[in-house]
Design a protein around this nucleic acid. Structure first.
Length: 507
RNA sequence: GCACCGCUAGCUCAACUGGCAGAGCAGCAGACUCUUAAUCUGCGGGUUCGGGGUUCAAGUCCCCGGCGGUGUACCA
């Protein structure tokens, strides 16, 4: 059963630990052997002098076969190795993906170290080497090792470098995706850049970044089904926030007139390529602004983010398609746009029965409890939104589906609300906020009644919020924008690729 | 939620109408001082997602369950 053919060294017997794969057993055996021989496979520190990126940058043009005289010590993960009799090649890369070739030759490291390298180093190991920078005979920039050691030994083999990891492994073990895929590394950084851009854009406009509670005693600020948890000390149920809105408005009441919160929201609903149960959200509120101002600022925030993250307003998606986020974006109004698309006049007064008929004509499934505004929104999605090509604002929504928005200043039964559609999905929504405490109370009471009728998404009646409004909130514009969705709009990725660790069912 | 497809070695994938479970890379042993998906020789590596059933015989067919993907419905 063991391999008895070797005559130059003992074969490495797979670790007898029963359930580990053969290759893990072999690597554990190597680890033990290193420890016994006094070589630390996991040193606390390694004597590096340079990053791989710096070595690459400092030596852009070394002629084939020439040495530079510069000695460096670098560390990286072995991603590819080629051993010949007395000369070994390996490619190591940094976390950022900068890769450089290293060479170990008999005449520089000696027979023992060369043999140790060949027998013990596996693809996936972190190693350090010290040596002279030069170029191989084929012209490949390389570090010619005089000395080497481990930075951290890997016990598991890396996936094959030249095949795509399957979707499930990429999501469940994101660290492998990050090791193997430049795109995964790129999107992780693009997310950071996007957040930094939004913060810079808002703080540059005199906004304060505030933090609002995730654990809430009431769920409000959006129509969505919340997660429920329990606090033992007070013996009460708490909700994970579905939106920060009501707290940000309390800030505005309190005189923090420009506030934003970049936050994580939780909604106990479906998950698909555009929805995650926890998702990133930016909300910002500005006193003495209305929904027109907020639309302009939103466009500027997105364009500034595109410029910073992609370097251009003509962004390229992963499928190669390009999308122009530049210029001003078209605006359409809900009722006129729907009327034009249908070839018949639709107004806030159009009876439910007629809206139901129009829905049924195009096979939109409807719920008998839906208010007319909801039917209008469904028709809008089907007839208008589905035909958008570039970023588009849709504005002036029906009142009965927007309980936190103020009535339109000149039109009856619509509210000053817009939705911004980019790439086929809703990226942001903005309001002229409802600040009249009496009307707000009526709207929330209606929500509470819907809730009592069994609507799990209806907002709770938040007395504390209503009382805050009664102290007077200045006229205010507000916006909510999906962070993950902004990444999606910039890159064309699915939502789970924009989140490092999206929720996945345990396997 | 519903429909369809998938799950096989560490990874990526094969396996015909049910008939000895395979390849490439990775691993082990050997050779090789200029490779770069190195090459050459040899060798190991499997609870075929889990459970049940049909059958002389199941990766394959049937049933139940799990996870994933795609489409579809709803929420952002």
């Amino acid at each position: 059963m063991s391999k008895a053919t070797a005559d130059t060294g003992p074969p490495i017997a797979p670790n007898s630990d029963s359930d580990v794969p053969e290759q893990v057993g072999v690597r554990k055996e190597k680890r033990s052997r290193l420890l016994e021989s006094g070589k630390d496979p996991y040193p606390v520190q390694v004597p590096i002098t340079d990053t791989i990126a710096a070595v690459l940058a400092d030596h852009p043009d070394v002629p084939a076969g020439e040495m530079t005289g510069t000695v460096v010590a670098i560390a990286g993960r072995v991603i590819f190795a080629r051993n010949t009799g007395k000369l070994c090649f390996a490619n190591i890369h940094s976390g950022a993906g900068d890769a450089i070739q290293i060479m170990l030759s008999l005449d520089r490291v000696g027979a023992d170290e060369l043999a140790a390298w060949k027998s013990d180093v596996d693809i996936g190991d972190h190693v350090w080497i010290r040596g002279e920078v030069g170029a191989s005979r084929r012209g490949q920039l390389s570090v010619f090792a005089d000395e080497w050691g481990y930075a951290a030994k890997a016990l598991r083999p890396l996936p094959v470098a030249h095949k795509e990891l399957n979707e499930e492994t990429r999501v469940r073990r994101r660290y492998l995706d990050l090791i193997m895929s430049p795109d995964a590394r790129k999107i992780a950084r693009q997310r950071v850049e996007t957040l930094a851009s939004l913060r810079a854009s808002l703080t540059g406009r005199d906004y304060l970044e505030v933090e609002t509670p995730i654990l809430q005693t009431l769920h409000g600020g959006a129509t969505a089904r919340p997660f429920v948890t329990h606090m033992n000390a007070y013996d009460i149920d708490l909700y994970l926030r579905i939106a920060p809105e009501l707290f940000l408005k309390r800030c505005v009441v309190g005189g923090l007139e420009r506030v934003f919160d970049i936050n994580r929201n939780f909604r106990n609903e479906g998950a698909d390529s555009t929805h995650s149960p926890e998702f990133g959200m930016l909300e910002f509120y500005q006193a003495y602004a209305d929904y027109n101002d907020m639309a302009r600022i939103t466009r500027e925030l997105i364009q500034e983010a595109a410029q910073r993250v992609c370097g251009t307003l003509l962004v390229t998606h992963v499928d190669g398609s390009t999308h122009d986020l530049g210029g001003k974006w078209p605006e359409v109004r809900v009722y006129p746009a729907l009327s034009a698309a249908l070839g018949q006049e639709i107004t806030p007064q159009t009876p439910s029965a007629e809206l139901v008929r129009l829905c049924e004509a195009v096979d939109i499934k409807i719920d008998p409890n839906w208010l007319p505004g909801r039917l209008v929104e469904e028709l809008l999605e089907h007839h208008v939104v589905a035909k958008f090509t570039g970023p588009t604002f849709v504005r002036d929504y029906p009142v009965d589906t927007s309980p936190l928005v103020r009535d339109h200043r000149s039109e009856a039964d619509v509210v000053e609300k817009w939705d911004l559609y980019v790439g086929g999905f809703e990226l942001a929504t903005g309001y002229s906020e409802l600040v009249d405490p009496v009307i707000q109370r009526e709207r929330l009471l209606a929500q509470a009644q819907q809730s009592a009728r069994g609507d799990v998404e209806a907002m709770a009646l938040d007395e504390d919020f209503l009382e805050a409004l009664e102290y007077g909130m200045p006229p205010t514009g507000g916006v909510g924008m999906g962070i993950d969705r902004l990444l999606m709009a910039l890159t064309g990725l699915g939502i789970r690729d924009t989140i490092l660790f999206p929720l996945v069912k345990p396997s």
